[in-house]
């Protein structure tokens, strides 16, 4: 199976700023790939290179088997895009903008468009300039999601949406991947990425710092456990899978726990008589914070 997106060693500079500095990204067919990174890490730059709006200075990039710069038009018929910062034509209504954008890329699915307008609760008769940020976002989302595309590229697709609409968006994305379509989305909403995505690529200062299947990356993350036991819990720190163990004066211990060892460690804790237990699940957020944190520290 050939990858939908295959980028390696991408370099892009703006004046003296190196926005991308040898960045790699691979997205396989049928997967939902998340693309994470702090503000200014190079997410939008990467997406624009993938769309052939910018030209990379070095590195190789293949999208749907073509060259995104050279074959832009042909490739764009097969993909749909939601920009990070949606601006609409002030004099066109939302409905007109959706139809126009759809037709510009080669048509959209009328039935799905009507359904999406309904589901996202959009009034398509308002002029572009009168929409709020969230409603502008909906217009761009509907225009992209109503397209019968092989690949959907979305730059922070849910920014400005309310939680109900976010949930609706996640449903739609699942429906799309159920049909075998591929999605690349950049996001800051980690809960959303955890729910939706199969693979994660983390970019920082223009370089890939983590990438892989979300399930595989979980091993990098650990639950944060805080427990109070009747008996002394000092031995817990010696167990396999326990890291950063610390015990307080009042019998309170905190440590982080690898998921694979949860059963053993919990049994050991239970043997010491658990009084109180709090466990924060392994989260992307922990990974995210640790990656971002080191970025800050290294600066």
């Amino acid at each position: 199976m050939t990858a939908v997106i295959e980028a390696s060693g991408l370099v892009k500079t703006f004046g003296r700023t190196r926005a991308l500095d040898g960045f790699d990204l691979t997205v396989q067919p049928g997967e939902v790939a998340a693309f994470l990174g702090p503000n200014g890490a190079g997410k939008s730059t990467t997406i624009r290179i993938l769309l052939g709006l910018l030209r990379a200075e070095a590195g190789a990039v293949t999208l749907l088997g073509g060259d995104p710069w050279r074959d832009a038009v042909a490739l764009h018929r097969r993909l749909a895009y939601v920009p990070g910062d949606v601006t609409l034509w002030p004099t066109l209504t939302g409905g007109e903008a959706i139809d126009t954008l759809g037709r510009l890329r080669g048509g959209l699915n009328e039935a799905r468009k009507r359904e999406l307008i309904e589901r996202f609760d959009l009034d398509p008769r308002k002029k572009g300039r009168t929409y709020s940020k969230g409603n502008r976002q909906k217009v761009a989302l509907i225009a992209a999601l109503a397209a019968d595309a092989e690949l959907y590229v979305m730059d922070e697709p849910t920014s400005g949406l309310d939680p109900l609409m976010e949930a609706e968006f996640q449903k739609v994305v699942r429906e799309l991947t159920g049909e075998g379509r591929t999605v690349l989305l950049s996001s800051h909403i980690l809960a959303e990425v955890e729910k939706l995505c199969d693979t994660v690529t983390i970019i920082r200062d223009g370089v890939t710092v983590q990438s892989g299947r979300l399930a595989d990356l979980r091993h990098l993350t650990r639950s944060a456990v805080t427990a109070r036991t009747r008996d002394d819990a000092a031995g817990i720190g010696e167990l396999a899978g326990v890291h950063d163990f610390a015990s307080g004066a009042d019998g309170l211990v905190t440590f982080s726990l690898d998921g694979d060892h949860t059963a053993d460690v919990m049994a050991a804790l239970a043997a010491r008589g658990i009084v109180a237990l709090e466990s924060a699940p392994p989260s992307l957020e922990a990974m995210f914070l640790s990656e971002y944190g080191t970025a800050k520290a290294s600066k």
């Binding site: 624009r48 769309l51 052939g52 709006l53 832009a72 038009v73 042909a74 764009h76 018929r77 895009y81 920009p83 949606v86 954008l101 510009l104 890329r105 080669g106 761009a140 590229v153």
Partner: peptide, 9 residues
């Protein structure tokens, strides 16, 4: 950007 990201050269 959105127009050029569609099938428009």
């Amino acid at each position: 950007e959105v127009v050029l990201a569609a099938a428009v050269s």
